[in-house]
């Protein structure tokens, strides 16, 4: 990013700005460079861009590069020993660790369920509140309520509801007239992850509903009118007008849900601490556990780097699969 600043700084010395009269015939490729106020526009423009750009440089790019470097060292958060380069030792240790593979498996399981279910539910919600009707704002607000509730509070609340004698089991028992005796959801390795999946979808579906809604609103109403004139059924309208019209939104929703799912952390940290028997541990949870609790900054950086590469790969594959075919 620093290199991009060079042209604008070099410019004033190269030509006297504003030397050419405005409107003078300049058939060259870049006539705007000589118009009056050019220098002022460059300086004010960079002045406006700089604060945010510098902050992003300092608090996103720099730590990212730093993390990349630390992954190949033996750095600890607080350590009297000097930091040494250790090559790929951290990665060798990581790939030999069964907990890491378990975490990867858990996150894959989580993503494979959450991505399709959450996007479908979010789309259904968006379709239900797309058209204006009496009370539309009430439903929009209620559907969005879980999103404005902090994931920490949500996890705490569901931790309470998932108890063996908690609300979920009582509701199940009441609605099934006592037939279903619920599990001890979070303390059973078989049900802990499904329980976390359910609350995660409950919390985040409203956010993706808003993104779907944006896509739905961008489809012209005339298309629906034309479809109705042709006698298209509701299903055909959805299949041939709505679904193709949502194409750009689809890839956005897919990528954001996937990245969010792979980064699973808060729920696990509050509810299960990765247990029982590592059945809910995740990549980020392992990174925070080793980096923060055990202060192994370098090992945690290696996990973060693997995670980042994974996110990049999956976004790239999704972009490729949902690319414009023409």
């Amino acid at each position: 990013m620093t290199t991009t600043q060079l042209p604008s700084q070099r410019r004033p010395g190269a030509t006297a700005p504003g030397a050419t009269a405005p409107g003078a015939p300049t058939p060259s490729a870049a006539p705007r460079h000589r118009r009056p106020g050019y220098l002022r526009e460059q300086l004010s423009g960079w002045g406006m861009i700089a604060p945010a750009a510098v902050l992003l440089l300092a608090f996103v790019f720099l730590p990212a590069i730093l993390g990349f470097g630390l992954a190949f060292t033996n750095a600890r958060l607080i350590s009297p020993r000097p930091v040494e380069f250790v090559g790929t030792d951290n990665f060798a240790r990581l790939f030999a660790d069964p907990t890491f593979w378990r975490a990867l498996l858990n996150v894959t399981y989580f993503a494979v369920v959450v991505v399709p279910v959450q996007s479908a539910l979010a789309l259904a919600m968006a379709l239900l509140i797309n058209k204006k009707f009496r009370g539309v704002n009430f439903f929009r607000t209620v559907y969005f309520l879980p999103v404005v509730t902090s994931m920490v509070v949500v996890s705490l609340l569901w931790l309470f509801m998932y108890r063996k004698d908690g609300l979920i089991n009582e509701l199940l028992s009441t609605f099934s007239f006592g037939l279903i005796q619920g599990a001890d959801w979070l303390n059973d390795p078989a049900t802990a992850m499904p329980a976390i999946i359910a609350l995660s979808i409950w919390q985040a579906a409203g956010f993706h509903m808003i993104i779907w809604l944006a896509g739905l609103q961008s489809i012209s109403g005339e298309l629906y009118e034309a479809a109705q004139l042709d006698g298209a059924s509701r299903w055909h309208q959805f299949r041939y007008v709505t679904w193709p019209g949502l194409k750009p939104t689809r890839s956005l929703v897919l990528v954001t849900i996937t990245i969010q799912a792979l980064g699973l952390f808060d729920q696990v940290s509050v509810m299960t601490q990765g247990g029982p028997l590592d059945s809910t541990t995740t990549i980020i949870y392992e990174a925070v556990r080793s980096g923060f609790k055990q202060q192994e900054t370098s090992y945690a950086s290696a996990i973060s780097l693997v995670f980042f590469v994974l996110v990049l790969l999956i976004s790239a594959v999704q972009r490729y699969l949902t690319r414009e075919k023409d």
Binding site: A52, A53, L56, F59, V60, F61, P63, A64, L66, G67, L70, A75, L77, I259, L262, G263, F265, I284, A287, V288, G291, F292, T297, A300, S301, S304, L305, F307, F308, V311, L312, S315
Partner: peptide
């Protein structure tokens, strides 16, 4: 700037502390 959107905060947190 848009590229920073794909970096999840959790991966930055530890180097950022340092």
């Amino acid at each position: 700037i848009l590229a920073t959107l794909i970096v999840p905060f959790q991966t930055l947190a530890l180097p950022l502390v340092w």
